[in-house]
Design a protein around this nucleic acid. Structure first.
Lengths: 184, 184
DNA sequence: GCGTCCATGTAAATGGTTACATGATTAT
DNA sequence: ATAATCATGTAACCATTTACATGGACGC
């Protein structure tokens, strides 16, 4: 699914502006499996409009800038349905931080710890944040997707808490870890 | 970490050809968090060589085509160490299949089931495959990364087996699901 | 005979991010 | 004052994938 189909998908849930589409993709229950920037949303909407897959109207608001609210057209719905018949592409999980740790011997023990703690902390924060969001109004399918994302975070946090110590059980840096200052 | 630094990382584990680097990235313990094609490996090695970060020699073999075996240089090691001091980029998890299911109401119940079963089966296969691979010779850090990948697969399979049914608890297709033929 | 594995490389196309450009309102 | 939120859009840049190009050995 490219940006165009993704935007179309969000529009099946209700009319929205480009700005709102991005917000939904970042804050909604599918946030765990996507990341998208304005630089791809706005051109995507422009193309969809040119192809007749969406319509739009301008909505002026007191104070805030006017927004272009997009609506999916019947042709748009058909195009999306068609796209969903194609086999989905395989998932990709990319992790820079795990690659760093994978080649951990090239870092000092201090740096390694820093990378690990930052990574774990990031997932802890995500876990805490998302378990606090209320998606009870969402459809079962959308809750399913969201909850699967949360389960992945939980699995990662659990695993790192249980097994992270192995990353530090070899020779420590000379002196570097006696200096416990620096961060927080 | 771009392809260049990734190749450099693999070369810290031992000399290798472009072909072997790809194999390691696909079959080694870091496979879960990367995907790379020849189209990015060969140009990357060319650039690394031009920058003096790797050396190479030609190795002829009986029968098989000759291969270019690359070695990391001291400058290469330094460049990689430098790269590991930069903050790692945030992870990305992208899933087409989950996006399909997220917008599941646009598919027939049959298609939805097909997508779900295919997705689950794919992760089951991955889980089974990777739990059968022996990485006891790898370093603790590399086993850590591999095992974390496996844990994610396990969490996904468990969650889908436990909760997947919710994707099918609404109105079934008219007729379509009484025809149980088709696949397998 | 056919498919797979080994082995390297280029070129075109794709798709996306980052930075730039603009600008009002509201909250600190 | 300053930052954040709302709001749209373009252009340059970047990285990667896909397809093309070539070819021998080995197993079925």
């Amino acid at each position: 699914m490219d940006s165009k189909m993704l935007c179309l998908g969000v529009l099946t849930l209700g009319d929205a502006s480009g700005y709102e589409i991005k917000k939904y993709l970042e804050e909604g229950p599918i946030a765990h499996f996507h990341e998208i920037s304005f630089g791809s949303i706005y051109p995507a909407l422009g193309k969809l409009s040119a192809e007749g897959l969406v319509d739009w109207r301008e909505e002026r608001q007191g104070g805030r800038p006017a927004k272009k609210v997009y609506t999916i057209t019947p042709a748009g719905t058909r195009a999306l349905e068609q796209a969903l018949v194609m086999p989905p592409r395989p998932d990709t999980h990319r992790s820079d931080a795990l690659t760093y740790l994978f080649f951990g011997t090239l870092m000092t023990a201090t740096r390694r710890r820093e990378v690990f703690e930052g990574y774990l902390e990031g997932y802890r924060a995500r876990l805490e944040h998302w378990t606090g969001v209320d998606f009870r109004d969402e459809s079962p399918a959308r809750r399913f997707v969201h909850d699967l994302g949360v389960e992945i975070y939980r699995a990662m946090v659990d695993f790192m808490e249980a097994r992270g110590h192995v990353l530090f059980e070899d020779a420590p840096d000379r002196n570097e870890d006696t200096n416990q200052g620096g961060k927080s």
